[in-house]
Nucleic acid binder design. Structure first.
Length: 307
DNA sequence: AAAACGTGGTG
DNA sequence: TCACCAAGTTT
């Protein structure tokens, strides 16, 4: 035997690992999945897409009521596209990151214009839509159309990090190794792959949570590499929590809150009261305007964008 | 590639 | 209380 004997890539899953994980996780999902509105058949691809936009960095509990109102008001992409972008921003409410509302409106317009009003099925076409990145394209293709795509969100990354790689937390940014692993673990056929995607996400959301995982209820606890290693603490760089108080983001939020509530254009003075520091206040407002979230009128007033 | 981008619940 | 966390995308 030579020193160059073939060996499996370090840290990679064994050939039989996938099958051993698929069934327990998918079976668990069948009995424990939450009954969320965007998972109902009647939600359709548009409902799935709307939910995915809203769920980008925003918890399910806060998305629920806004999602219902949104779909009731704009049941099809063309319905949203027919309204001014500012109406999308207003209906977005306090979900946060309001540029998502603008992008969802722009995506709806693109769907209405270029795709005959139907959410495209092709991953590349989904990816080309405003506000749709790698995750959302895969999620819509998988959840709405039952296709086979690696769906790698924060939940799945954590589940794979623990169950397979054996670490408490995945790296800060998604790595090529994580993408490769997600691809390797993907079941071969479309329906099973789609179920796997939804199931691993749900497992991360309900059981394999960031702070205090409930391993007692985990269907793959006996196979979890992290548990088997004694649940070692995170070793990498500290996970940065973004500060918010005093940032431009906070000021933008306060300014936009005023505009959302207003039915008519708002005077400069009404915006000035939300923040006392004039330089930062002006910078925040300029930022909102350049982002297309606020429209300045020639008479010195401001409103949510009509175009 | 690092940083910007909202908001509210929770341990 | 306060830092962490939540189905990311864009520049």
């Amino acid at each position: 035997m030579t020193t160059t004997t073939t060996s499996r890539t370090a840290g990679g899953p064994s050939d039989e690992a996938p099958a051993a994980l698929h069934s327990p996780v998918i079976d668990w999902f069948r009995t424990h999945a939450r009954d969320l509105p965007w998972r109902r058949q009647e939600a359709g691809p548009w409902g799935v897409m709307v939910s995915e936009f809203m769920l980008q960095q925003t918890p399910v509990s806060r998305v629920l009521p806004v999602y219902e109102q949104w779909l009731a008001r704009w049941p099809r992409p063309a319905d949203l596209a027919a309204e001014p972008p500012g109406e999308a921003v207003r209906a977005w409410g306090r979900l946060g990151y309001p540029r998502r509302a603008l992008r969802l409106h722009a995506a709806a317009s693109a769907i209405a214009e270029r795709h005959g009003g139907d959410v495209p099925q092709d991953h590349a076409k989904l990816l080309a839509l405003p506000g749709v990145g790698e995750y959302t394209a895969a999620a819509v293709a998988s959840f709405a159309y039952g296709q086979r795509h690696p769906v790698l969100d924060t939940n799945v990354r954590r589940v794979f990090g623990r169950a397979v790689t054996g670490v408490q937390y995945p790296p800060t940014a998604t790595t090529a190794a994580e993408r490769r692993l997600a691809r390797e673990l993907l079941p071969d056929d479309d329906p099973t792959a789609a179920a796997w995607a939804a199931a691993t996400m749900e497992l991360g959301a309900l059981v394999c949570t960031a702070r205090t995982p409930d391993c007692h209820r985990c269907p793959i606890a006996t196979q979890c590499a992290w548990r088997l290693a004694g649940s070692p603490a995170h070793t990498g760089p500290p996970r940065r929590g973004q500060t918010y108080a005093g940032t431009d983001r906070q000021v933008r939020g306060k300014l936009l809150a005023v505009l959302r509530e207003a039915v008519t254009p708002v005077e400069q003075a009404a915006l000035d009261v939300v923040w006392d520091e004039p330089v930062q206040r002006a910078r925040a407002l300029d930022g909102l305007v350049s982002d297309g979230l606020v429209e300045p009128l020639t008479n010195g007033t401001y409103r949510l964008p009509l175009t």
